[in-house]
């Protein structure tokens, strides 16, 4: 097991390397010379010279990458063009707000999806089953940010029951989950974020459960006189690895989705910051945020893989 963990972690290194190369090259994708891309338009002559030297812009590309990597690994992501603050501070601040959203949305989505899927799988052909099938198609076809807008129209505009956008009058710094006046700002974003993957997770769970239910060993268990509850426990356990794999993927979609959702709700998280960076053409912030988010995704995939292999030893061997 330990060997597997080690091997799997080693395998993640080239991926992380590749991801960093892609993020590095974002600056070069932007039109214009890289110096002008990462510096404010009114940068002084010394600043330009200093940055050129620090990032080795007069050296060949691989060397530039190493310079950049050196900076990144020491926590220096450059400076935001818009706010003139270090990118690292901007990103970490925003990430904590995103994390607040996802830490509610993920359990909500996964719990709801799993429960619906398991129910549908145990009662194939019934109403729950059809509901799940429908929800999955709707879920993948729905523009998630539009769902956010619709929820705003219903709950904020028509019923005026919940606030539409933002984090409340006190802003991000004094936001407290324990105060209703603050916490109510989270409800719509969290629900919007969570509703999207529910259908897909439910559909996968349904398929996995139905597949396991059809296996011979379930018939054997029943024949042995095991109670139906015990059988279902067995089935859920055996369908877990597949479900887990999809949840890992959906976590990524959730993260990507948060870009649009946070924009809709002007929730000051990493996604909102990204969309602001796009409007301001603040490439350093764009690059830093993308790097952070994708690395989190790589790490989550790693964790999901390891969890899967813990549940299902067969995976370790392949």
């Amino acid at each position: 097991m330990l060997a597997y963990i080690m091997r799997r972690m080693l395998l993640a290194i080239p991926i992380a390397f590749g991801v960093s190369v892609v993020c590095f090259s974002l600056v070069y994708l932007a039109p214009g010379d890289p110096l002008s891309v990462i510096l404010p338009a009114d940068a002084t002559q010394e600043m330009v010279a200093q940055i050129r030297h620090a990032y080795g812009f007069d050296r060949p590309l691989p060397v530039q990458y190493l310079f950049w990597l050196g900076h990144v690994l020491t926590g220096d992501f450059g400076m935001s063009i818009a706010t003139r603050r270090p990118v690292i501070l901007e990103v970490t601040g925003a990430l904590s707000n995103t994390f607040m959203l996802t830490s509610f949305a993920v359990p909500l989505a996964f719990g709801l999806g799993y429960a619906m899927g398991a129910l549908a799988g145990c009662f194939p052909g019934r109403a729950v089953d059809r509901l799940v099938t429908g929800a999955a198609v709707v879920g993948v076809s729905l523009p998630n940010y539009w769902l956010g807008i619709v929820l705003v129209i219903i709950f904020a505009v028509e019923f005026m029951a919940l606030p539409a956008t933002g984090m409340g009058p006190k802003g991000s710094a004094q936001f407290s989950l324990l105060r209703w006046s603050d916490a109510q700002y989270m409800i719509l974003p969290v629900v919007t974020l969570a509703l999207i993957p529910v259908g897909i997770i439910a559909r996968t769970t349904r398929a996995a459960v139905a597949e396991v239910l059809n296996l011979d060993f379930v018939t054997t268990l029943r024949a042995k006189g095991l109670s139906e509850i015990a059988v279902i426990r067995h089935v859920l356990k055996n369908s877990a690895p597949q479900v887990l794999a999809v949840m890992g993927l959906q976590f990524g979609y959730l993260m990507g989705g948060s870009i649009l959702i946070e924009t809709v709700f002007t929730w000051p998280g990493s996604g909102f910051m990204l969309s602001k960076a796009i409007i301001n053409r603040d490439i350093p912030v764009l690059q830093g945020t993308i790097l952070f988010l994708s690395m989190i995704f790589v790490a989550t995939n790693l964790v999901v893989d390891l969890l899967q292999s813990m549940i299902d030893p067969r995976i370790r061997r392949s």
Partner: peptide, 17 residues
């Protein structure tokens, strides 16, 4: 490597840059 990005993120990163 490209698979390691959530698709929205990658699309935003590339077209954003």
């Amino acid at each position: 490597v490209f698979y390691a990005f959530p698709s929205v993120l990658l699309a935003v990163a590339i077209s954003g840059a």
